[in-house]
Amino acid sequence: MSSDFVTLAYTPFVDAMSIHAQWYLLIVPMVFFVAVGYKAVRVTDMKRYWRNVFAFVVQVLGVMAVLAVGFTIVITVLVPMLAPMPG
């Protein structure tokens, strides 16, 4: 049997998705659903619900982005300065 004869069938909710290269993008729907559920029981005035959800999502993603930049600087700049590798 030739390898190109086999195709992987994908059944939603049964088989895992093959999006290994884009795993970090999953934080967006994850934070959105957390915000929708959490703000549903936290906001006092439901008229401001979607504004609160949006603020929650932006805050979490913003902090994550800042942390990512910070850790990138630590790993690529500070650590090589503090502990330079030979060669």
Binding site: P29, M30, F33, V34, A35, V36, G37, Y38, K39, A40, V41, M46, Y49
Partner: peptide, 13 residues
């Protein structure tokens, strides 16, 4: 309204 949104949040996640 709160119940539907809470359901969407939990079951969506």
């Amino acid at each position: 309204h709160r119940g539907i949104l809470a359901m969407v949040g939990v079951l969506g996640l």
